[in-house]
Amino acid sequence: MLLEANHVGWRYDKGDWLFRNVDLTVRAGEVVGLTGPSGSGKTTLGRLLAGYMQPAEGTVSVQGRSPGGNAHDPVQMVFQHPERAVNPRWRLEKTVKEGFVPEPGLLEALGIRPAWLSRYPSELSGGELQRCCIARALGPETRFIVADEMTTMLDAVTQAQIWHAMLDIVRERQIGLLVISHDRPLVSRICDRSIPFGE
């Protein structure tokens, strides 16, 4: 199972190319880092891979993606700002269960306490929200996860906790993980290989 980008390029409308001719492959069960300066288009590439946007040239391919986009996508994305990735008017329970109903074991592995689920996003910290966003992304049909600066806004302790839990789950389920981060020590610590981007 592969998540592949072939000669992908992107630009706004008819503006300058942000990047062109990017080839990238993530295999099932592999943890790949993507590092580069801010403004180089790491996030855009992540969004292209996750199917949030269509590339201006080249193709992104993954087995099991529905062309109409009306089914659960095999590639899920986790964002830098969890507070923007959840509906502020929903209790967390509804958010966590939006795609599928996670087993209690999964929530426990991610350190999500049952009490959080009855609260609103404004009543939880960034780290707690991010754990919920990760749980939401780990549906049974998920084959790849794109983590875009997933723990940049969190403190080191929470960061270590989240990544340890995430790596255990990803290894066990043979999910391919693309880690987008500017933090080189983090990438070299958790990734099997890393790709420098835009340098």
Partner: peptide, 26 residues
């Protein structure tokens, strides 16, 4: 264009579902 609506699409939710659960309450 909010992240949580985009995520909802990727979780396989239909446009109608999103309109009634995400848009309407706002």
């Amino acid at each position: 264009s909010a992240d949580f609506v985009l995520v909802s699409r990727k979780l396989g939710r239909s446009r109608m579902w999103i309109a009634s659960r995400h848009l309407a309450p706002h």
